[in-house]
Design a protein around this nucleic acid. Structure first.
Length: 439
DNA sequence: CATGATGACGCT
DNA sequence: AGCGTCAT
């Protein structure tokens, strides 16, 4: 067994080249493409909500320059930037319908897909691409002289730790002339088994950046949309790099720069550490920056957190992330939801039935479209609802198998599920008043 | 009153 | 199966 393992091509820490492509203020770009007269103007996308001008979910860079951000209300944006264009998410069936942006995201993904089989859509406007194969191929071509990097392709490219991309390229060129100049440091810093990959890291990431440039140019040419990209050896670092220079730029995170970069990187910037767990990590360890995690042994981290998270933190703090780019073009689930905040709480049966009808109608349309496009049918339905119980938000979810379905049966299923799982669905003595408001 | 609408995934 | 977390 042990000897056979040696012959298995092992996925090593620095073997892959991974891109994270992130559309710049995507919903705004969709609106700007649809309304060319809005281009070059400050613009934000709001979800319809008559309360204080709607909630902002996307802001273009002209508007960001005026201080407009997400979380803001449309009215606040107008105060900061009176000339701002506020585009509303289309309202269909009395609720925000984001289909337009999903369709635009698919259009982009169709372009990305041509560059690798290993495309993982992470959200409507983000995707990971494992481009290892292409990079390896070009490495070989480069060594045989069949391929050469075109410096002009790297005009919008940055490398973390370098004032400009030219300095990064020069460093690589110098090492080409003097291959062993870094060896002592490398041998000190890295596992012996990783040295071959480490020595080739910079050049392979640079080739990755040229691929990224081609990807982004194709997206721009074929869809009109601009995006930013991160280039690194794994998903976590690619995601991090992509956010460093925007919009319409791409950033390499060189292996040798990771440690010093992490020394001043707040823990919460790492994907997965932006919430409560990240805060627990900081408090438990008494730290603020990612680089400070490396002072703890793997066993210490496992003891303070748990086995899985401890090992994960230990590796991530060293820039190591073995998470595969899992090919996925279509979402695993289709859902829609609507909130009823404050006075809009649903308190009557009729209103509840009405909204279940609206939501079911949207779901039904999207399921039909999905069936036509992707030849698949939903097997399960999950109904989630949030009640107001003594002023507290109490969330519940119940599921049911789905055989044949249509809009009417989806409504019936969901209402039945809510009825069956609510202690007293209707207020005692009433035919129509809900016992607990649904939020 | 009040980001909201989606989606993935981990824990138990 | 149901709940909670994290992300855009």
């Amino acid at each position: 067994m042990a000897s056979a393992r040696i012959h298995v091509s092992m996925q090593s820490k620095y073997d892959r080249v991974v891109l994270l492509v992130d559309m710049d203020c995507f919903f705004c770009q969709v609106e700007e493409k649809q309304h060319p007269e809005y281009r070059n103007r400050p613009l934000a996308v709001v979800q319809y909500n008559p309360w204080r001008g709607g909630g902002i979910i996307a802001v273009n860079y002209a508007a960001r320059a005026k201080g407009v951000t997400r979380h803001m209300r449309g009215d606040e944006a107008k105060d900061l930037c009176p000339e701002i264009v506020l585009c509303q998410v289309p309202n269909i069936r009395e609720k925000a319908d984001t289909s337009k942006y999903r369709d635009a995201g698919k259009e982009v993904a169709n372009v990305l897909q041509r560059f690798t089989k290993l495309l993982e859509r992470a959200s409507v406007d983000e995707a990971y691409l494992d481009i290892t194969e292409t990079v390896n191929h070009r490495m070989q071509q480069m060594q045989s002289g069949a391929f050469a990097l075109q410096p002009q392709e790297l005009v919008n490219t940055f490398a973390v730790g370098y004032p400009n991309i030219g300095d990064f390229v020069n460093k690589i060129t110098n090492r080409f002339a003097n291959p062993y100049m870094d060896d002592e440091r490398f041998q000190m810093s890295y596992d012996q088994n990783d040295l071959p990959a480490v020595r080739q890291s910079d050049i392979r990431l640079l080739i990755g950046a040229s691929v990224a440039g081609e990807v982004r140019a194709a997206v721009k040419k074929e869809t009109g949309y601009e995006c930013s990209a991160g280039i690194a050896h794994n998903k976590i670092l690619a995601k991090l790099a992509a956010g460093m220079n925007k919009p319409n730029k791409q950033t390499i995170l060189p292996l040798a720069e990771t440690a010093s970069f992490f020394d001043s990187l707040p823990v919460g910037k790492i994907k997965g550490l932006g919430g409560k767990f990240g805060e627990v990590v900081c408090e438990t360890l008494g730290i603020k920056f990612m680089g400070q995690v490396v002072k703890f042994t793997e066993v210490e981290l496992q003891r303070k957190f748990d086995e899985k998270n401890g090992t994960w933190l230990f590796n991530i703090s060293r820039g190591i992330d073995m998470e595969a780019v899992t090919p996925r073009f279509y979402s695993k689930s289709i859902g829609c939801c609507k909130k009823f905040p404050g006075r809009n709480n649903i308190t009557g049966l009729k209103t509840l039935q009405h909204w279940l009808g609206e939501l079911s109608s949207e779901i039904n349309d999207r399921l039909e479209k999905d069936f036509i496009e992707n030849n698949r049918r939903a097997k399960q339905m999950v109904v989630q609802y949030v009640q107001d119980i003594d002023g507290e938000e109490v969330a519940s979810s119940r599921s049911t198998a789905l055989k044949d379905y249509d809009q009417e049966s989806i409504v019936r299923f969901s209402l039945d599920l809510i009825k069956a799982n609510t202690k007293t669905f209707l207020r005692p003595g009433s035919e129509s008043a809900l016992n607990n408001a649904i939020k």
